[in-house]
Amino acid sequence: MSQFVSMLAYGLADGAILALAALGFVLIYKATSVINFAQGEFLLVGAYMFYTAFVVLRLPLLLAVVVGVVVATVIGVLVERLILRPMIGESPISIIMVTIGLSSLLRALVQMFYGTSVKPMPKILPTGSVDILGATVPLNRLLVIVVAAVVLTAFTIFFRRSRHGIAMRAVADDQQAAMTMGISVRRIFAMAWALAGVSALIAGVLLADISAVDQNLAAFGLLVFPVVILGGLDSVPGTIVGGIIIGLLKQGTAVYWEPGLATVVPYVVLVLILLVKPYGLFGETRIERV
C-alpha cells in the first residue's frame, strides 16, 4: 500500500509536469497547426532563464518568476515571428524540420552560455516529507501537483472566460470565420507561442526543482508526444488526462515491473494508440481516408 501511495505521488507529479509541457504543445498545434518538436527545449530555456534571474542575478523569487515569464513570452513571440511565420503554407515535413532545427539551435545556445555541468539551484519548494497512509511522500512532489493544478485551472478559466481565450478558441476552430469577426489571427498566433513559452517555463522550473538544472531537461520534451497523442492532439483537457496517465504509467512500470522499461513504455502506448484510435481520447475526429 505504501509503495502504491508513493508511486501515485511520483506519477502524478511527473504527469502534472508533462501536462503543463503538453499544454503548450497543444496550444500551438490548435491555433497554428504547427507540430513543435522544440517543446522540450522550451522547458530547458525556461528553466535556465529562471536560474539566471534567481541564482545569477539574485532576484527575489517572485521577481525572478516575473522575469522568467517575460523572457519566455518574448522568446515565444520571436520564434513565431521570425521562424514560423515565413513557413506558413509549407508542407508538414518542412514545418516539422524547422522546429527540429530550432530545438537543435536552442539546446546549443544553452550549452554555449551555460556549459554542460549541473547548475546548483537552491530548492524553491520545501524538501521535507509527509506520511500518507504509511508512505513517506516528499513534500515537493505534492506541491508540484498543486502548482500544476492551479496553473492548468488558470489556463482553463482563461480559455473559457477571457476575451483573448475565447478569441484563441475561435481561431483554432475556424481561422477565416475568426478573421471576419475582427479577430487578429496574427496576434493570436503570437499569443499561442507566448503562452506555450510560459507554460513550458513553469514546467521547466518545476522539473528543475525536483531533479536538477541541466541539459537533460530537454529530454522530457519528447515525452510530450505520447501525452498529446493519448489525449488527442487538439484537446486541452486531453493533455491533463494524457499527462496523468502517462506519468502514472511511467512510475507504475518503474515500481512494479522494471525501472529501465519506464523510458520506452510511453512510446509503445503511443504506437498502440495510433493504430487503434489515432485521434486519442478527446481529439477531434477528422475523417480523412488515406
Binding site: 515565413p86 524547422v98 532545427g101 530550432l102 537543435s104 539551435l105 539546446r107 546549443a108 550549452q111
Partner: peptide
C-alpha cells in the same frame, strides 16, 4: 550544433 540548427532553419525559410 547551433550552426546545424541554424542551417536547417535558414534553408527552409
Amino acid at each position: 550544433n547551433a550552426t546545424f540548427g541554424l542551417v536547417i532553419i535558414l534553408f527552409l525559410i
